[in-house]
Design a binder for these strands. Structure first.
Lengths: 193, 193
DNA sequence: CCTCAACCTGACCATACGGTCAGAAAAAGA
DNA sequence: TCTTTTTCTGACCGTATGGTCAGGTTGAGG
């Protein structure tokens, strides 16, 4: 799987640090063959980023058919942390792309992501109006959800060092519980303990 | 200022994408002169990263002499968001470094950062024991603090696109208020609204 | 068995990059 | 002023990289 190999190399070395030779080696085929499927390094990179963005958006729909914030946002946190765990490399490539000014997926940000964000912000506003949660700024809440979940992928190395090794099953469970507990209580969607 | 120029270029292009020529141009001196002050690209990069780490640690001390979590963690959030605003490039370079496995500052993670983290986790545990906040996992709380504050620097581009332009003074104030409100209420350090 | 298109590959090329170096300016001492 | 040390610079070099290309291999259709 070329895309898988490319994702790994791009995540580990960044776009500039990645070489077609490295990707080819990891995918187990000669470099020239890569150029048969992807004309340029940028084309391959774009394919990787778009693949991640799709996963990202798909998983985001768990928030849709939820009765209230505790259920909807809770499920969203679980889903995003699961992505951080299963697709850590993808998350890193995405983070890298955005950090460098989104040279490749600027249009996605301005269309798909902007629409998605506006939609979910509206849902949150509705929940607030229905008295199901505190009056928090929906956009900043969304940023916080993204930040605290993706952090486990993007800064996974740092977390592993501080944790003294890779996160165990129990560690991941604790992470999910902690993030959900703090945020849900923080937005007044949980009874205060 | 060479370090300033290097920080900008490394932040915008990543280590692999940055070139000594670009940094030299931005600093306004010939490339060969860069190599007079910094023998290799890696040496320059290391200097940039270490500079950021110092800022990062220094600002972290606001949490020290605080009576309780509302005050201490609140001040820490303010300080870290201020860093995200004033040193966005530095934050990006740090994020990039960690994301790629911390090839240069691995030792810092294992010594200074690990010690700092353990110390602050102890403070949080004390606050919990004193009944000043809810029983949350201190480590995961710290990760959440880092994530939700640094996000405004590392993903600043994405936020600006969604915001329809750079964050205004009021936007930054709202960001600080939102993050503090949700987290402080989330850890039971604020009266529930 | 032949044809043709899709798939694959070793060898090659132009370029851009990190780094070097001999020596010029400039500054600091005497 | 002369000497020495530090700072600076244009020109240059070896290498690694993205990309090309002519030709080989494979396999489905007839």
């Amino acid at each position: 799987m070329i895309l898988k190999a490319a994702e790994t190399v791009f995540a580990e070395a960044g776009f500039g640090g990645a070489t077609m030779q490295l990707i080819a080696d990891m995918a187990g085929l000669p470099k020239a063959n890569l150029h048969y499927y992807f004309a340029t390094k940028e084309a391959l990179y774009r394919a990787v980023v778009e693949r991640i963005f799709r996963i990202w958006l798909t998983a985001a729909n768990v928030m849709d058919d939820a009765a209230g914030p505790a259920e909807g946002i809770g499920a969203y946190i679980d889903a995003k942390l699961e992505i951080s765990r299963r697709h850590a490399n993808g998350s890193k490539v995405w983070a890298s792309e955005v950090m460098h000014g989104a040279p490749v997926i600027q249009d996605y940000l301005e269309t798909t992501l902007r629409d998605w964000t506006a939609g979910r912000a509206a849902v949150i506003r509705r929940w607030i109006a229905e008295g199901k949660m505190a009056e928090v700024n929906p956009e900043h809440l969304l940023y916080m959800l993204w930040a605290s979940t993706q952090h486990y992928a993007d800064f996974g190395h740092q977390i592993e060092v501080l944790n003294g090794g890779p996160l165990s099953e129990a560690d991941w469970t604790a992470a999910k519980a902690s993030v959900k507990e703090i945020i849900l209580r923080g937005i007044g969607a949980l009874p205060p303990s």
